[in-house]
Design a protein around this nucleic acid. Structure first.
Length: 400
RNA sequence: GGUGAGAUACUCAAGUGGCCAACGAGGGCAGACUGUAAAUCUGCUGGUUUUUACCUUCGGAGGUUCGAAUCCUCCUCUCACCA
């Protein structure tokens, strides 16, 4: 493959690249002399469930692997103790080594759905940060000053808003930057929100005389299903890559039409020209936007499962939501005769509390065997029923 | 160390003795309309084997009072100014 084409693949969809020249040099050297280089990605071991937001960067890493990169997946087991400053004053729970190892393993398994295992190294930053010691830590803190630290967007905002900033939080960017020193990486990837930390790596590599300064490549932050907030597990607006085909398909289809184009740009493997054509088609009214969304849903579902599973998911989706029929697999549970409907809904996991169940029944959101019920005092007699709350929550109950 | 201000539900934010399970906004859930899209309209948004009732909640622990998110004391945390 030509170097120009490789570079075009690397640059696609990026938010910002610092030191593009260096990347080009590395790629060129690979193609001419077969010399590999190192690309780093730091991961937080607290949340082992990868979602599409992570895959934006992982996909980029896999592009690099095609062009001569050895990927360094860094598990931030040490830095997890501090937690990247987020503005939230949550106390982090301290993870023990075993949990971290387990999380790392899960990470790895999931990441290998996208990455080439033969060109990936797994690392833990406790390896060198444990060894740093108090004097090493102090040495590290002399490399930067408070005024510059406060330039970091998040710190600046909080400082101006009069919110607290723990001293330990200043350590986070420094330690992350020091990782780059220890790893001697050539390029570091991250989201745009990581810019400050990524640049710190460059700064520290220079100060510690590593002999190179990492290039930085930032990917845009993928919005979650709501289209506003960034995709994250804690916000519940994510599509997990380990989720079932049906779920992934349905979630993709539930995004807004505007957001769909964003997902195309960042997640699809279709060429940019192809995407532009689809877009024109929709704008001209020649293609129904739902068709385009279905294509995206199929593509993404196929990526984490396979084509057959994706097709099945599509069929199932149409059956349940377009044709209003019952899904194929409905979780079952048993209950005693005469059980109060609200209690049954809670037991089935369809409702969080009987009070909530009561409200939903009053609002016509609950049906039994596809018939709405309005009676909150209903007790179920012996028999089998299909319970449904809203459009998407189903359960089969055996009473008696 | 001193002085002052503040801590309310998922978030922001009213409420300064009874009309408070606590205004409002955002978010979320549900209904109508749809393409499980968007926009719009409507309802709900602490819990309880059963609800015009009862129980728990306004940083924490005590106290005053017939009655406290509201008053008092101590504590914890945050911010500002001074040192």
């Amino acid at each position: 493959m030509g170097i120009a084409k490789a570079m075009a693949e690397i640059e696609r969809g990026t938010a910002e690249i610092i030191d593009l020249e260096r990347i080009e040099t590395l790629v060129t050297r690979y193609y001419n002399e077969g010399e590999t280089y190192r690309v780093k990605l730091g991961l937080d071991p607290t949340a082992p469930d990868l979602h599409l937001g992570h895959t934006v960067i992982l996909q980029k890493l896999s592009v690099f692997q095609k062009h001569g990169a050895i990927v360094q997946l860094l598990i931030g087991d040490f830095t997890a103790m501090i937690g990247d400053p987020t503005g939230k004053n949550e106390t982090r729970k301290v993870l023990d080594r075993d949990t971290v190892k387990e999380n790392a393993k899960t990470y790895q398994e999931q990441a290998f759905k996208i990455l080439d295992p033969d060109k990936t190294e797994l690392m833990f930053n406790s390896t060198w940060l444990d060894a740093l010691g108090a004097d090493g830590m102090i040495q590290l803190t002399t490399q930067y000053n408070v005024a510059r630290m406060l330039e970091r967007d998040d710190f600046e905002k909080r400082y101006k808003a009069g919110q607290s900033i723990a001293v330990s939080e200043f350590l986070y960017p420094l330690l992350q930057g020091y990782d780059s020193v220890a790893m001697e990486c050539d390029i570091e990837l991250g989201g745009t929100d990581q810019k400050f930390n990524l640049l710190m790596g460059r700064h520290l590599q220079r100060n510690y005389n590593v002999g190179k300064e990492q290039a930085v490549l930032m990917m845009p932050i993928l919005e979650g299903l709501d289209g506003v907030q960034k995709m994250s597990k804690s916000l519940g607006n994510y599509i997990g890559i380990a989720e079932e085909a049906n779920t992934i398909y349905a979630k993709v289809l539930s995004i807004s039409d505007t957001l769909m184009w964003r997902y195309y740009e960042l997640l699809s493997n279709r060429s940019l020209t192809e995407i532009a054509e689809l877009r024109r088609g929709v704008e001209d009214g020649n293609i129904h936007p739902k068709k385009v969304k279905e294509m995206l849903a199929l593509e993404i579902t196929t990526r984490f499962h396979d084509e057959a599973a994706a097709k099945d998911a599509q069929a199932e989706f149409n059956k349940v939501f377009a044709a209003n029929q019952l899904p194929t697999d409905i979780p079952e549970f048993a209950a005693e005769e005469g059980i109060w409907i609200c209690k049954a809904l809670v037991d089935a996991g369809l409702e969080p509390s009987t009070s909530q169940a009561r409200r939903d029944i009053q609002q016509n959101a609950v049906s039994i065997d596809q018939k709405k019920i309005g009676d909150v005092k209903l007790n179920l007699e012996a028999g089998e029923y299909i319970l449904q709350v809203g459009k998407r929550k189903f359960a089969k109950v055996k009473v008696g």
